[in-house]
Design a protein around this nucleic acid. Structure first.
Lengths: 197, 197
DNA sequence: GCGGTTTTTGCAGTCACTGCAAATATGCAG
DNA sequence: CTGCATATTTGCAGTGACTGCAAAAACCGC
């Protein structure tokens, strides 16, 4: 099924090696100072091969390994009683719970904090994923993907997602899923300001 | 001041010529197909000169000319009775009202719709602006810029902003300021789904 | 017109990224 | 085990964004 043997496994191994090498080097020297050649040297493949796996240098570091169609399906599978925001929240929370403790994900989050310039490139690397969320909300509501409600809600869920990521400090403070729920609670409450102390 | 005459005027002229050439060519052939050399040929300057004016090819098309400190001040000047979301909404609305009818802004919006890939680069080009909003919200609430409320609210206002832009169709349908208010109303209402027809 | 300053330009170089075709590795049928 | 079909890796050559540097040209005040 997933792996008809050696070929698939090897491919996944190289992909992971490239990811790991890229994240490590990015954190060590900063995104500017790392070349594709460096990454490949560390991962033990030819530079040309890098671009068989990723479209962009950044993608190795920033892309999430989730197929858009899976995300779409997960959103549609949530109970119809949930609002779009609640449905997406549940999907995001499940995803965060899965990856929050993985080494790569924690490293990536630290990298984003150290180099905020990467944030826009993160949203670019995950544009297919974001489109899936838009489609999911559109289908749940029966509205077109160009409707203001769909656009606003989708963008707001990304906002909550990013906010949780930016506030997260792996190792100390609230865990990532908690932060995501806090952010989503704020969105559901219309972003009412918190009481002053 | 803006004085010393010719030199300053000429500089502003080339900057504008480059901007105009870039936007025109982007719309005509698509971002991919336009080279810096093309833009410079049309603007009548050497390719090297382009990078004296802009750091990136895209910047000529996407950058907005608004100082972060102005935005911060405008946010802080809103009445204290307003929630952060309301204050930022007012500032954005004023800005949109100013530029919605300018040729360049309309062209740029159409470009963004035709080539959504540009969106992340837009947020990159305006990252200083976004930081100003974060600081403004932090100062209005007295919370640190790393607080989850600040992060979520700031990101949500960008979400509303982007949603309005993406839904806007210059020339037909609701105008940009109206769309912005619709998006912000949705955020204030906690993104409650609209009644099914 | 004449120095001092700013702006433009050419040049050489680095690096991300692409298409193409040869080399290599894998899967499988016989 | 062997040879064939297919998938993957690699080298190579090329495009184009972007940078630093130093010479040339334009501008400014005198």
């Amino acid at each position: 099924m997933t792996s008809s043997g050696l070929r698939e496994r090897k491919k996944e191994a190289t992909r992971e090696a490239l990811r790991h090498a890229a994240v490590t080097l990015y954190r060590e020297h900063g995104p500017q100072a790392v070349t594709v050649e460096d990454i490949c040297a560390k991962a033990g493949v030819s530079p040309r091969t890098f671009f068989n796996y990723f479209e962009t240098k950044d993608e190795a570091v920033l892309s999430i390994d989730v197929s858009p169609s899976t995300v779409l399906r997960q959103i549609l599978e949530r109970p119809a009683s949930e609002s779009p925001l609640q449905a997406v929240r549940a999907v995001f929370a499940a995803r965060f719970a899965e990856v929050a403790n993985t080494e790569t994900f924690r490293e990536r989050t630290l990298l984003l904090r150290e180099h905020p310039d990467l944030t826009p490139r993160l949203t670019f690397a995950n544009r297919a994923f974001q489109q899936a969320v838009i489609d999911g909300i559109a289908q749940r509501t029966g509205l077109g993907p160009g409707h203001i409600y769909v656009a606003t809600t989708a963008a707001a869920t990304f906002a909550g997602n990013r906010a949780a990521l930016m506030c997260w400090q792996p190792g100390s403070g609230p865990d990532l899923v908690t932060l995501l729920h806090q952010a989503m609670d704020l969105l559901e409450a219309g972003l009412t300001p918190p009481p002053p102390e």
